[in-house]
Amino acid sequence: MDWDKLRVFHAVAEAGSFTHAGENLNLSQSAVSRQISALEESVKVPLFHRHARGLILTEQGELLYRTAHDVFAKLSMAEARIRESKERPSGPLKITTTVAFGSIWLTPRINEFLERYPEIELSMVLNDEELDLAMREADVAIRMQPPRQADLVQRQLMTLRYHIFASPDYIKAHGMPKKPEDLKDHRLIIYGEDARPPVSNVNWMMNAALQFKPDMRPILKLNNIYGIYRATESGLGISALPDYLVPADSTLVRILPELEGPSFDAYFVYPEELRHSKRIGVFRDFLIDKISEVKARLAAAANA
């Protein structure tokens, strides 16, 4: 097949229309249409159903698209590895992680990383759904559970544990719980039914309070850990948060230290083909350095 036509076909399948594909390729709509017609003539089957609302792949078009997508993903990976031959790490690096971890822990540290490696073109995708690294939807992921795909390299980064936190404003208004039983008299923020936390007993704090007040109701349910963090920070109530979500400059106060919640591991994950990537290597080493600093801070706080 003609590679230029295949490239145009892939762009059209991704965009869903000749017009949008042309904009992405800097080609006119008529030029894109001619390329697709020529490709369909060469394979002797229609690749798209033409509708007023746009284009839909035929069964044969879907087969060709999946193959082309895989080929272009591998070509992109090969290009990345070739670029890694330079002495200094450079080129694009796409990272994906959860909204909470990316927003609170990772993003504030990115400036330091880019100051060390200014030739790396960094992009981040914060999404609680897992992107497909094998299809190069991202180069590397930081995940709160082990990867399910067998062809991915994984490294355990750190173990995270839930603790109970409240803001100074909340404590001033409602008092400081002194013992687990006191939770029954406080406003608790918990995870809602739609939450997808990395542990099964994520509402362990609420369960502790229910032992003393079975008919207790939370002040708020949220399906997102970042939302719970912000609600706690605002003074709405008390919540259970992973320790990484409380940065060094946070005003949140850890309460009831004798109550420790469940723990889970964070993993650094990337495709096997990128095992020798310098960009991934320096980013991994940077994370390990920053995690060591956090561990030291948490250890000092625990011994204070």
Results as ranks from 00 to 15, higher is better:
A52L: 12
I82M: 15
A21E: 01
L57K: 11
F113Y: 09
I110Y: 04
F18V: 02
L75N: 05
V125P: 06
A73L: 04
I95W: 08
L55Q: 05
A80F: 10
L75V: 02
S28D: 15
A13Q: 13
A80S: 15
S37W: 05
L106Q: 07
P89S: 04
K44M: 02
I36M: 08
I95Q: 10
A68M: 10
L106I: 00
L25S: 03
E79N: 14
S76R: 15
Y117A: 06
R66Q: 09
M77L: 11
T58G: 12
L75Q: 13
E119V: 00
I82C: 04
L64H: 10
A15L: 00
G22V: 01
A100R: 06
S76L: 04
E14G: 03
V71H: 09
M77N: 13
F48W: 13
E59S: 15
A21M: 01
E121A: 05
S30T: 03
F48E: 11
G91E: 14
N127L: 08
T96G: 09
R81V: 03
H69V: 00
E112I: 02
R81G: 01
S17E: 00
R66V: 05
V12T: 05
M124W: 09
F48P: 14
H51K: 12
R83E: 13
I82T: 12
G16C: 03
E40A: 05
H20D: 06
L27T: 05
S90P: 05
K74Q: 15
G91V: 11
S90W: 06
V45G: 05
V43I: 12
P92V: 03
S76I: 00
R66P: 04
R116N: 06
A11G: 01
L47S: 09
I36H: 11
T97G: 07
E62G: 14
E115I: 04
A21P: 06
L75T: 01
N26V: 05
A13N: 07
S17R: 04
V8F: 06
M124N: 09
V71P: 11
E41M: 14
R116W: 07
P118L: 01
H20W: 00
Q35G: 02
R88T: 15
Q29D: 08
V45W: 03
P89K: 10
R81Y: 05
W105D: 04
V125L: 15
N127C: 14
E87G: 07
E79T: 06
N127V: 02
L122D: 00
G16A: 01
V12H: 12
E40T: 03
S123M: 01
A78Q: 13
E87A: 15
P108C: 09
